[in-house]
């Protein structure tokens, strides 16, 4: 119907199958232990269904809808970030400009203007926003505001927009198509979160960074790292132009950087003394809570792939 490359189609069907298993497991649990409260589990699984449905629909429909979806995710993430960090009343106008740059950044991606895509935010926006702040003229707290704003834009717009650029790269694995790269990145990143959590629950003893995140253990981190590295070595030849060896390396990059993204956003929340960054996704928290690892894995996976294959 929509002419989905074979490998990507099977991958998407497999994900839907896993979601079905998740839903069935929850219903069985509920039937077996009717007195226990499974509200959060139900919300989590339902939210997964929605997120997967929206992502798959956008990916399958057209390249443009997928890029628009990623731009909207950037917008929601940026809004959430700017809502939880302190800002001065004088910054409102500059923040308005920060939102305006999102369509530009994704337009560069959609038209595969790589040079502009890669320097627009780190150079032009980086230099433009402080100039706009100077015109407002409030100097008290200037450097902190400029720093916070640029940090927010780099993470939520620049880093996330790399997912969109995966879609416009030259198709070097026709069996999977450009969708395959996005599926690979998203699935590996999310599975990494899950497998680090499961390994940590089962064998977790030695804490990595108790000050930032008391639940993160060496056992969880290393277990996830090994799982995702091997899995990615096996899956990469199916969904990406990478072979087994490069696939292993990609898994290593995704797993370790995903962990870092997770704890960096945890540190931000701990600094602000909040638990969740918002309540957009029931059972998960805010959009930043879901996209935290992706902000680190997307650019690092992209540039690894770009270096070895393009």
């Amino acid at each position: 119907m929509f002419n989905i490359p074979q490998n990507s189609l099977y991958t998407m069907l497999l994900v839907l199958l896993f979601l079905c298993i998740g839903t069935i497991t929850r219903l069985v649990l509920k039937a077996k232990f009717p007195q226990k409260d499974y509200t959060e589990l139900r919300q989590r699984i339902q939210s997964w269904w929605w997120m997967v449905a929206i992502l798959f629909f956008a990916l399958v429909f057209s390249k443009t809808t997928a890029i628009i979806l990623f731009a909207l995710i950037s917008y929601l993430a940026l809004k959430e970030f700017l809502s939880i960090v302190p800002s001065r009343p004088a910054d409102r106008r500059v923040i308005f400009w920060a939102y305006i740059i999102i369509p530009f950044q994704y337009y560069w991606a959609a038209t595969s203007w790589y040079g502009m895509f890669i320097i627009f935010i780190p150079v032009y926006v980086f230099l433009f926003l402080p100039m706009r702040m100077v015109l407002v003229g409030e100097t008290k707290g200037f450097i902190r505001s400029a720093g916070v704003l640029h940090w927010a834009i780099m993470l939520t717009v620049f880093c996330l927009s790399h997912i969109a650029y995966l879609l416009v790269l030259e198709d070097k694995n026709p069996q999977a198509g450009p969708i395959g790269l996005v599926l690979f990145l998203v699935i590996m990143t999310q599975l990494n979160d899950v497998s680090q959590y499961i390994w940590g629950k089962l064998f977790g003893k030695h804490k990595i960074i108790p000050k930032v995140s008391p639940n993160k253990t060496w056992e969880g981190f290393l277990g996830g790292l090994v799982t995702i590295t091997i899995l990615s070595g096996l899956v990469a030849p199916i969904l990406t132009p990478l072979g087994f060896a490069y696939g292993l390396l990609a898994g290593l990059i995704i797993s370790s950087s995903g962990f870092i993204g997770d704890v960096v956003i945890s540190s931000v929340k701990r600094d602000l003394q909040i638990k969740d960054s918002g309540s957009l996704i029931p059972g998960h928290g805010g959009i930043l809570d879901r996209m935290d690892s992706m902000m680190f894995t997307a650019p690092l996976f992209f540039h690894f792939l770009y270096y070895v294959k393009y």
């Binding site: 809004k79 809502s83 009343p89």
Partner: peptide, 19 residues
Amino acid sequence: RGLGRALPKGTALFVPFNC
């Protein structure tokens, strides 16, 4: 909380913020 950041008294420029 937060609406005073999105559209405070005396301004016409609406800036998106979570509330």
